[in-house]
Design a protein around this nucleic acid. Structure first.
Lengths: 198, 198
DNA sequence: CGCGACGTTGATTTGCCTCAACGATTGTGG
DNA sequence: CCACAATCGTTGAGGCAAATCAACGTCGCG
């Protein structure tokens, strides 16, 4: 049996702030463990993303379908990452993204209203959510910079270096799409690297 | 004489949360008005961005210089926008960005430590900074989606629609770079539009 | 008035995409 | 437990959107 899920999020939160016993209880109460099976959707376009998810175990992707019908990966998530349609969740407006499990997953789910409650009832928890929002923004800004400044091969290199675990568990086509290139082109990049090493 | 700067930020903050008199005083005290002249830098690579800036009047751009020596616009700001090197400011690490005034500007400047103080001393102000961080993250995610899914011309169209004011005040080359294309290509897009209209 | 900053236009090149065909692996129902 | 389909990755030929390079026009300002 894996470490119990609520324990995991307490540990996670305590990386950033100190929690009173009361805070811990509130957090444990509001985050509900759920299981989702591979290929199952937890967010779909047109519906408001009422929940935010913290990954205890498993892998997921968030993607949009462009006008051309192409799939574009916006987010990837493994253990200890958050996932949802960020825009939809924050503003409680209809989603544009799909979020789908790439493996069988155990997640902790929190409802929008419950998150508001936690933030209102505890300054410390408000601080926690502020910190993760800041980190999300910083993360996305780095991604924007990479996308604007680097070639396809450089983007793949950065990704490999920073997220070696993802390479093992996320299908190539999802990574290619996350990096803003086609599966075919990523395949050619990898092939070129192999040849270069000999 | 323009509306006094501190008043402006109080109005801005009150769009999102209610402020006690004490909060108002604290905010007014910590945000310092400064003037910067066109072409002046307020953030430079290698130095920690110790401040975050709220634009009272003027226009600024944040950009990085890629390995190829090319300039890439990461952020643009007009009245009521925030600007800094987000990563550098949040983590208090050396910046990778330049932030430069495109016009003579009046800004409100807040020091990192003072912002921490405001957040610690008032739950309401903590909430405010949480909200703007969430909005920053949502904004950047939308930009990532646009960059991944749209062609150069579509990106320019979205930009025109959403930020018509920017077109008047930001030089074309900075907009082109913000949208991830060259000045020359943007010029050709605009030219094509003009022709199409006749 | 002259110089630097900004924008335009055309010719050429290129990084990446599209399309198509084909293995390898996985999973699934009979 | 096998057959067959679906999923995933690879490879190659050809095409296109956007970059690069180069030259030139214009405007504002020191």
């Amino acid at each position: 049996m894996e470490t119990s899920s609520p324990e995991r999020i307490i540990t996670y939160v305590e990386q950033f702030i100190k929690l009173s016993e009361q805070d811990k209880n509130a957090v444990t109460e509001k985050f509900k463990p759920i299981k989702v099976k591979k290929r199952q959707f937890i967010v779909q376009p047109g519906f408001v993303a009422r929940n935010r998810y913290f990954v205890i175990r498993g892998a997921l992707k968030g993607y949009v379908i462009g006008d051309d019908g192409q799939e574009h990966t916006i987010q990837l998530a493994l253990e200890d990452w958050w996932i949802s349609d960020y825009n939809s969740y924050i503003f409680q407006q209809p989603a544009t993204m799909f979020v789908m499990a790439l493996e069988d997953c155990t997640l902790l789910q929190i409802k929008y209203e419950d998150e508001q409650f936690l933030k209102n009832s505890s300054h410390r928890l408000e601080t926690f959510f502020r910190i993760i929002a800041e980190r999300a923004a910083a993360f996305m800004q780095r991604r924007i910079i990479i996308n604007l400044t680097q070639s396809a091969e450089e983007r793949y290199d950065s990704f490999m270096q920073r997220y070696p675990l993802m390479l093992q568990r996320i299908p190539q086509y999802a990574i290619a799409s996350y990096l803003g290139m086609t599966t075919e082109f990523l395949s050619k990049i990898r092939n070129k690297k192999v040849k270069r090493k000999r």
